[in-house]
């Protein structure tokens, strides 16, 4: 069992954590974002085959049937509803919940920073994320040398470099052969699953080969677009980026998908995949889709894992080192 009281070393890290979060908020405000708060208890958590929500029940005080709700896995749907209402640039620093995830990089409840700016694409947002991280590094580690510029590598180039395979293909055989040849093995159950093989190569070969300091992966296979816009082409690529700091994923950003019909297709596809994997499907968020139908302005948005960023800034290895009371 973890100690019941945080140690004095932990308290010192928590003071530094508070400084870091103050700096993050101040920086986003200075860049013109409005701070907002959206619900933690939601009707529809994000529909993603790889994210499991905590289910909770609302029990009416006066009696009556209870209502199934979920703790939010990210504030994305609600923040886009604000954008569709004309909020302009918005940010949030809040709590997100992902069931089942515990490791040195995961706590099942964690602090997420998420922000959106109308009129931008993912390239401009990457510039801003890089500026912001470098600014925080200067503030929190004034004596350390400033991080080098963050290189941007396409997922295709990173896969080619790490294992010599094409991540855009949907055929499991070449990915399986590439994993074997790269010496990372093939996970049991992933042999015929191109999606799982792609994820395994990403986790076991691509991420560990990323350069020290900051680095972006950009232009994801369309299958891994999540809620990003797909740019037509051969192959079509998702306008999505992830920021890594010393090989650890810190942030995930998109040129946001604004098309309601396409968004509905993707939610249904994710739910179909959930059912096929034996997982509970989540309700389709009609309020979110109605906001897209009314008109989500073209925008870019990013979600950033605050605990991971703080751990990196403070030079400690585990997110639990900067969380007062990690999952018990």
């Amino acid at each position: 069992m973890a100690p019941t009281l945080p140690t004095s070393e932990k308290l010192a890290l928590l003071r530094r954590r508070a400084e870091a979060i103050d700096a993050l908020r101040a920086s986003l405000r200075r860049r013109g974002y409005l701070e907002v708060e959206t619900p933690a208890v939601t009707v529809c958590p994000g529909v993603d085959r790889h994210l499991q929500a905590f289910a909770v029940d609302f029990v009416p005080a006066g009696g009556g049937p209870s209502l199934r709700r979920y703790l939010t896995t990210s504030p994305e749907y609600h923040m886009k509803r604000l954008l569709a209402a004309g909020s302009g640039p918005v940010f949030q620093v809040g709590r997100a919940f992902r069931n089942g995830e515990v490791s040195e990089r995961h706590n099942p409840e964690f602090t997420i920073a998420e922000w959106y700016r109308p009129g931008w694409g993912y390239g401009e947002l990457m510039d801003e994320v890089e500026d912001l991280v470098r600014e925080m590094a200067r503030a929190l580690r004034p004596t350390a040398p400033p991080p080098r510029a963050f290189p941007r590598t396409t997922v295709a180039a990173a896969f080619e470099g790490a294992v010599g395979a094409d991540p855009h293909g949907g055929d499991p055989a070449p990915l399986r052969d590439a994993a074997e040849a790269a010496g990372i093995g093939v996970p049991a159950g992933a042999e015929g699953d191109a999606d799982a093989l792609y994820c395994w190569i990403m986790a076991a070969a691509v991420e560990p080969a990323l350069p020290e300091g900051g680095a972006f992966l950009v232009d994801y296979p369309a299958r891994h677009a999540a809620l990003s816009r797909v740019r037509p082409g051969d192959p079509p690529v998702a306008e999505r980026f992830e920021l890594f700091l010393d090989g650890i994923e810190i942030a995930n950003g998109f040129t946001e998908l604004t098309d309601e019909a396409e968004q509905r297709v993707r939610i249904h596809a994710e739910n179909a995949a959930r059912v096929a994997a034996g997982l509970e499907p989540y309700p389709t968020d009609e309020r979110f889709l109605a906001a897209l139908a009314r008109g989500l302005p073209p925008c870019a948005g990013v979600a950033l894992g605050v605990d991971r960023l703080v751990a990196w800034l403070l030079g400690v290895p585990r997110v639990q080192d900067v969380i007062a009371f990690p999952f018990e």
Binding site: H50, S103, W200, M202, A203, A204, N252
Partner: peptide, 9 residues
């Protein structure tokens, strides 16, 4: 082990 927004292992 889990890559960003992906399958867990």
């Amino acid at each position: 082990v889990k890559p960003g927004k992906g399958q867990a292992f």
